[in-house]
Design a protein around this nucleic acid. Structure first.
Lengths: 252, 252
DNA sequence: TGCTTAACTTGATTCACATCAAGGCGTAGG
DNA sequence: CCTACGCCTTGATGTGAATCAAGTTAAGCA
C-alpha cells in the first residue's frame, strides 16, 4: 500500500491530518466529483495506487510549465490553480481556473508536451496521476476509460462555451457568466453558492474573459450599484441570483 | 465512375472509383492523418470493421444536431463540415470547420448528447465510428486508445488557440490566422497550400472568428490591396505567405 | 511602524469594430 | 431570358470597451 515514503512514518502522519492532506481517494470528500466518480470501491483502490500526492504548492508556484514534458494529469485537492498560455509577444492568455475536484493537464496529451502552464493562485495541493499508468489502468477498467474520455470531452464543451462567450457576449455578460460558473462550482462542493472568495485577481479575470482590468472593475461596480452582488475586494456575495442570470443572458 | 448504385455490385463498384468513395481504411489516402494513424495494418483491419460508411451528405444537410443522442464520432472522408452551437437567443456560434481526415463529434461524449450540430458546407462523405465499439477496441489496442486520447487533447489545444485568438487578436490577425490554418490543412493533404477554395461563407467565417460579415469582407479587401492574397469570391491565392504570417502575428 | 509596491477603482478620451444602409454580382428558378 | 434571392462589398455613422491617466486601498517587507 505504501507508495513513496521518504522516511518512516510519513504515511501515518498524513492520515492524522487528513482534513488538509487527503491520503487516499476512498476517504477523500471530493471523490464524488473527481476522477474516482463512477468507480467501484475496489477499482478506486487500484486508481489510488497510481496516484502520487505531493506537498502543497505555494502561491504563484508552478505545477508545470508550457513546453515541459508531459508525464501526468493532476486533480486539484485543495486551493485553486490557473492554466495559461504565453503568446509569442509575451502576453498571457488564461485558459482556465481549476477548483478542488477538477482535473487539469489534459492538453498535454496530444504532443507529450504541456500546451499551457499551470500555477497556484493560492496554496494548493494536487494529486498527480501519471498518464501511462492511467492509460494501462484504463485498458483494464472500462468505466475508468469511459470516465476519462468524458472528462476530456467535458473540457472540450467548456472551451466551446468560453469561445461562444468571448465571441458573442458583452463585458457584463461575460463577467456575470463567470460569477455563475464559480458559484456553481462552489455549490457542487457543498459550499455556499452565494458567498465566496475569488481566488484570482481582476487581471486574471480580465485575461480569461478577454477584457481589461478596468472593464472588469467597472462591471463589478455596476453589479454592486444594481444590488446584484456585494463586492468587497475578493469577497463576493450574490444578492440577486436571478438578476445575475439575466445579466449573464445565457438562458437557463 | 458511377457512385452510389443502390443495387448489386455496390462494393465492387466502389472499389473501382476509390478516389472519391474509399471503402476501407487501408486503402484510404487519408489514413496517414486520420484515426488509423499509428496503427499496425492488422489493427487497421479491426478498426475498419467497426466503421460504417454511409452515403454522402448534401450541402446543408446535418450529420447530427445539438441535443441528439450521442452514438458515434465521425471522420470526414470528403467535403467540409462546420460544427456550431445555437445560443438560447437564436444566434449561432461556429465552433469549428472539419476537413477530410479530421474527426468530429467528440464533444458529445461527456453527456451522451451532441453538444453542437454539424452540417455539410458542400457535398461531404463521412466515416461513422460507433463510440461503444471504439471504446471496446481501445481497451484491447493501447495504440488506438492512446491515439484517441491524443485526438481529444488536440481538440482541446485547438480550442485554446481559438480562445486566445478571440480574446487577444484584432480582426486582421484573426482572419489571417484562419487562412493560415486552412492553408496548412490543405498542405497536409498534399494539396496546394497557396491556392484553394474556401468551402464556407463569409458569414460562417465571421461567426467562427467573432466578427461581422462586413468586417471579414473588409479584411479580405485589405489583404488584396496589400498584395498578400488574391481573393476572388471563394477562390483564394496566397501571394505572400510571409506577409500573411506577419499579419497573423502568431509567431511561427 | 512606516515604506514600497501591487492590486483595484474611477474618470476622460480614443479607436476598432458593429451597425445601418445601399448597391453589385452570381446563381437558381419561373 | 428575366427576376429574385442570397451572398458579398463598400461607405457612413455609432458605440462598447481599450487606452491613458490619476488616485485609493491593500499587502508585503525592511
Amino acid at each position: 500500500m505504501t507508495i513513496h515514503l521518504a522516511e518512516s512514518g510519513e504515511n501515518a502522519a498524513l492520515k492524522q491530518c487528513s482534513h488538509d492532506y487527503q491520503v487516499n481517494c476512498s476517504s477523500c470528500r471530493l471523490n464524488s466529483i473527481c476522477l474516482p466518480l463512477a468507480l467501484e470501491s475496489e477499482d478506486i483502490q487500484l486508481l489510488d495506487n497510481i496516484i502520487q500526492r505531493s506537498k502543497p504548492l505555494q502561491k504563484n508556484q508552478h505545477l508545470y510549465r508550457e513546453g515541459d514534458d508531459f508525464q501526468s494529469v493532476y486533480a486539484v485537492r485543495s486551493g485553486t490553480l490557473k492554466a495559461y498560455k504565453t503568446t509569442d509577444d509575451g502576453r498571457e492568455q488564461v485558459t482556465g481556473f481549476y477548483f478542488p475536484g477538477e482535473i487539469l493537464g489534459m492538453d498535454g496529451i496530444s504532443n507529450n508536451t504541456h500546451a499551457s502552464s499551470a500555477k497556484a493562485l493560492e496554496t494548493a495541493a494536487t494529486c498527480e496521476i501519471p498518464f501511462t499508468s492511467l492509460e494501462k489502468l484504463s485498458s483494464h477498467m472500462p468505466s475508468l476509460q469511459r470516465h476519462f474520455f468524458q472528462l476530456m470531452s467535458r473540457e472540450i464543451t467548456e472551451d466551446q462555451l468560453l469561445i461562444t462567450l468571448l465571441s458573442k457576449n458583452s463585458a457584463d455578460e461575460r463577467v456575470a457568466a463567470l460569477m455563475l460558473s464559480i458559484s456553481t462550482r462552489y455549490a457542487r462542493r457543498k459550499l455556499s453558492a452565494t458567498q465566496f472568495r475569488l481566488p484570482m485577481s481582476r487581471v486574471d479575470i480580465g485575461n480569461y474573459l478577454g477584457l481589461t482590468v478596468e472593464t472588469v472593475s467597472r462591471v463589478f461596480s455596476r453589479m454592486q450599484k444594481l444590488d446584484i452582488m456585494r463586492v468587497d475586494n475578493k469577497e463576493i456575495e450574490i444578492l440577486d441570483p436571478e438578476a445575475l442570470r439575466r445579466m449573464a443572458n445565457l438562458g437557463r
